[in-house]
Amino acid sequence: MRNLLEVNNLTTYFKSNKGLIKAVDGINFTVSSREILAIVGESGCGKSVTAKTILGLIGQKKNEIIGGEVLFKGENLLTKNYREMQQIRGKEISTVFQDPMTSLNPLHKVGQQIAEVLTIHEQISRQAARKQAINILTKVGIPSAASRAEQYPHQFSGGMRQRAIIAMALVCRPDLLIADEPTTALDVTIQAQILDLLQDLRHELKTAIIMITHDLGVVAEISDTVAVMYAGHLVEKAPVKLLFAEARHPYTKGLLNSIPRPGSRKKLEPIPGQPPDLHNLKTGCNFADRCPSVMAKCRQQSPLLKKIAPDHQAACWLYEEER
């Protein structure tokens, strides 16, 4: 499989008056076409910043310092200007954000907001765009879509809004969808429906998905590959089954121990402590202070993400000898 997206050594720093915030600090991953990659991690670890940097939504302001490469179909997105990115966003790479209550413009009709994507990216009449908007609303499971399209966001429930936003993201049949915690703000039953919907649509539209989440349940349900993120670094990456069966990084293990598993009578053990302050990082591994297997070396140098087994990568000094 050819890589659709290749992220090489991506860094996103923010200058602030408290100092440099290293929100994303040298991450590497690839997404092949039709793959679902989950990026999982506690809130504040830099998941959304990663997504927005890939889309070019971060990097325009003076205090935002970006490094590395984001190769999409072989072209580096980070060197493109706003106009060039405009043609890619919404057409080839689209997005679903976390909060459906705030992601739609309250003053525009829902149908109009979907049709807008089409009129930007395709030579299409207003009527045709409107018709297509209604079609895709039906496809994402909105009943009586024609009349719903004429309504405003406040007339939609949270789940309906997220469906409409997914419709908006997929109406131009993008190659890559970045879904940033698309189910976090929804009720559990609605969450499951939205995940099902995303899976159905990806089979039909053949879209690759980067699924950003802090919820391992979502990861298990939907993804092919999992990348675990901690304080701006990727700490482990493996196919989903392998990761759940044989997690190697102490942080990943901690995450898995902190969620209930069916059939298991083991007591849940939350990871002690808090994630570090991103603008006040010590040298060494960012996880050292919370790590049960911390060694002297961990405080001196930060480990890099390296292959520890076939298809399995981890950034941890524990596995240095195995290489």
Binding site: Q86, G90, S103
Partner: peptide
């Protein structure tokens, strides 16, 4: 600062 502005950017809306 609103999310829907970011969303509009992510849709490819011109400046």
């Amino acid at each position: 600062k609103q999310d829907y502005i970011e969303m509009a950017r992510a849709k490819g809306v011109s400046q």
